[in-house]
Nucleic acid binder design. Structure first.
Lengths: 189, 189
DNA sequence: CTACTTTGATAGACAGTGTCTACAAGATGA
DNA sequence: TCATCTTGTAGACACTGTCTATCAAAGTAG
């Protein structure tokens, strides 16, 4: 394994183990057993290293999408939505990093293509579902990619708010699953 | 105006003017014309100061909610949703700070009460709408607060993804308004 | 085999950060 | 007047990311 790959792996382990605050260039170097300046031989800076880690996160998310059980398009979309929220809840640190514009380089080609692949896969599931379903809850003719963007946003916000601790009013603390059920009900009926 | 208030104001100005990266304790002190250690006389640390700024943000958001035009409950909910996304898009730095768990203290009482007030206000709008509407797109009997949480998540994710630059597939870049229209269509029909 | 280049790693430095502590000046109150 | 409290200052400390000089090892061309 190349030194570059080893650094990415070390950083990812540190991320899931100790949270996004712990993923410092020097901390990664120490965990990898190299000097504090060594990572800069393989990455232009912290943002590039963390972008590679985030790309790994999107790849893992895409793999979850590829492992969805067979079934009707409706079942597959539903499963994908559950998988997205589940990924966020079970990998909070990775999920946070993946959307932290200040820590990564949003223009990084690998990152862009990995996140686009996630969106495209999801949008295709939505397209198939809408092509088949006849009970059209949304305005007919709506671009499936627009529906996918809206639905992705809904899932994303649900996960983000729950991680933030903000799905709760003072006396009301719904689980992400129950809120997700409502979301799916709204979009898919 | 107390020194504490002046620091909060200075920090808020710095935030909207130069982004969340610029809101450093020393930068705030310099902008306020005091020494670098002075803010610690009024706040226990950076998190407490930034929590006060974020609380200001939630208060501003709540004021937007209070200025909604009169109309049917449906119109009011719709307007509130537009207002939320519009707030995020027009105040990206403040919006980002308000949900950055690493920069603020999520337990801070003022912050909790301000964000809860936003949620409660929104939930009440949703409750009124659902009490009146007869075309129930969602499962009847669903707790309005759960609907509010789900819908808030949808708005939040939409805003967050758009700010992240991720409402776009490579060849598909919807505006937040068009995606919001689909979201409102899904929830409100 | 020998020179040269390339690559990877190291250690030191620098500015910037949050936070802590010692200190000073001024107001307040007994 | 004297003591105390408040507010602000300046310096230090341990971090951070990044830059640079140095160095060792490993090819590689002659």
């Amino acid at each position: 394994m190349s030194a570059r790959q080893r650094l990415i792996r070390t950083a990812a382990d540190l991320l899931v183990g100790s949270g996004v605050e712990a993923v410092t260039l020097r901390g990664i170097a120490k965990a990898a057993g190299v000097s504090h300046g060594a990572p800069l031989r393989h990455f232009s800076g912290r943002a590039e290293l963390l972008s590679a880690v985030a790309t790994l996160g999107f790849t893992q998310l895409l793999q979850r999408g590829a492992q969805l059980p067979d079934g009707t398009p409706r079942e597959r979309v539903t499963a994908a939505c559950h998988a997205y929220v589940d990924f966020a809840v079970t990998n909070p640190a990775m999920f946070e990093l993946m959307f932290r514009r200040d820590l990564i380089d949003p223009e990084e080609p690998g990152l862009v293509s990995a996140s686009s692949a996630v969106f495209d896969t999801f949008a295709e599931l939505v397209r198939l579902d809408r092509a088949e379903a006849d009970d059209d809850r949304l305005r007919p003719g709506t671009d499936p990619r627009l529906v996918a963007a809206s639905l992705w946003g809904a899932l994303h916000g649900l996960a983000q708010l729950w991680l933030w601790g903000g799905l709760a009013g003072a006396s009301f603390a719904p689980s992400p699953e129950s809120a997700l059920a409502v979301t799916l009900d709204a979009y898919l009926g």
